[in-house]
Design a protein around this nucleic acid. Structure first.
Lengths: 173, 173
DNA sequence: CTGGAAGAATAGCTGTGGCTATACAAGCGA
DNA sequence: TCGCTTGTATAGCCACAGCTATTCTTCCAG
């Protein structure tokens, strides 16, 4: 049932809940609600990011594996992502049709130019996010995990701010 | 069917057996690659978060709508999320079976106690993330969009750091 | 040179989250 | 009251990202 097992949601100080349904019927909104279209655009953007993040994860990981060991085998990708090998095989096929990688049957996986560019951008962004989290005092283990999820949702503007922050050596935190 | 227990708490005993520390420590080349099992756990955590974020989005939005207008209609939810009404209907059915909301046919949607708790936690976290982004100099529009995506991937530790940062009035950025 | 192990491909299933088209219920105004 | 408009429910489709089980290929060891 509910989520009580998830520590990410557990730490909330105290949850006071009052809905006051009767009072806001005619009183002026005082809402935390923005304009519906603006709201929608945020969600649309987030959904779009969710579609691309898996691709970025794969391409980034493939680049790392190639750099580290000269090749990116499906079994290694599967192991590091924590999924089964056929899942990786299917995804690689998609990456190939999308033009990010080249595959030769029963041979290795290679990044195309486009794939390498995407990998480079992802790695840079990933590194900035992780460094930023460390700079504000997050432990390295948590920073690594959070960065894995956060990196895909960081806009260029925010990334720039993170970078500036890290460059200044953090702040008075 | 409810949210599974967080993989972090699941221990995965058989997966921990070989850490092959010896090989990783002495090689340690220019690779940015961490231990495979550690890597996997990050991705597992991220995948787990992705499963819960839609639920959180819905519950949070429903709470906002109820507070704002006294009710949460499917059409309003659909409009704000930028999806079609049947998509919302299907999702609400799932939320109902998971125990977050109560539905009465052709009547409104109401949050259960569990749903309200989740909504409150999500809103608090959302607000902290958005405030934090503003505090480091992000524009409000970008902060809103990025927060929508980031909030689901922020661990309690990181959230705590964000909160401290905002409480100190940001930094010299 | 050949057999088996390891890696890659394929088949086929599940659950999720979108969509369109359409049927049904409720409520309001003429 | 009747009918129209609005809102909800249902049916049925698709894509995607998992999975297990199984079938190739390759390659190395004996």
């Amino acid at each position: 049932m509910a989520i009580q097992a998830n520590p990410w949601l557990r730490k909330t100080p105290e949850l006071k809940i009052e809905m006051n349904l009767d009072e806001n019927l005619d009183s002026e909104p005082e809402s935390s609600l923005v304009d519906p279209n603006t709201h929608m655009e945020s969600f649309r953007q987030t959904r779009h990011n969710r579609r691309t993040e898996l691709i970025e994860d794969y391409v980034e990981l493939i680049a790392d594996l190639i750099e580290d060991g000269g090749e990116a085998r499906q079994v290694d990708i599967a192991q590091r992502l924590g999924v089964a090998q056929p899942t990786v095989a299917k995804m690689l096929k998609r990456l190939a049709t999308d033009g990010y990688i080249q595959q030769r049957r029963y041979r290795g996986v290679f990044l195309t130019d486009i794939g390498m560019q995407l990998a480079e951008r992802s790695r840079e962004r990933h590194h900035i996010v992780e460094s930023f989290l460390c700079a504000i005092g997050i432990s390295v283990e948590t920073a690594r995990i959070d960065a894995e999820g956060i990196e895909h949702h960081v806009s260029p503007e925010t990334l720039e701010a993170f970078k500036r922050f890290v460059a200044r050596g953090g702040s008075s935190l």
